[in-house]
Amino acid sequence: MILIKQVAIFLGLWLLGELISFFTHLPLSGSIIGMLLLVVGLELKLIKTKDVKDVANFLLNNMAMFFIPAGVGLMCHYHILSQEWLPISVAIVVSALLVMTVVGLIMKKRS
């Protein structure tokens, strides 16, 4: 029962997020709005920590697994990857270094 209640809270937040996304035309997906709703709900004590804790930890610990089906879809894009490997690899490596530099130096400078 405890797990069912917790799962129901997550699915309820998701549904609420989807509805808000649909009616407000915000450029945010239902799941992102659901995430923000969860923070607000916990902070305002509308949702109790103990009512989301176990399922939240389960979902966070296994996050990686849930996107494997999407990752396998890579097999459909073999041609894009072989054609555009140069722009893709340069962009990924340089951009990752830039992000680390920007975040690292701002945090260091002002601490």
Binding site: V7, F10, L11, L13, W14, G17, S29, G30, S31, I32, G34, M35, L36, L37, L38, V39, L42, E43, V52, K53, V55, A56, N57, L59, L60, N62, M63, M65, F66, F67, I68, P69, A70
Partner: peptide, 19 residues
């Protein structure tokens, strides 16, 4: 789909980590 269905709830769970 039974696996990928849980993608969205796991995004929502980030709200718990954030909190």
């Amino acid at each position: 789909q039974v696996i990928s269905f849980w993608l969205a709830p796991s995004v929502i769970a980030l709200g718990y980590a954030l909190y």
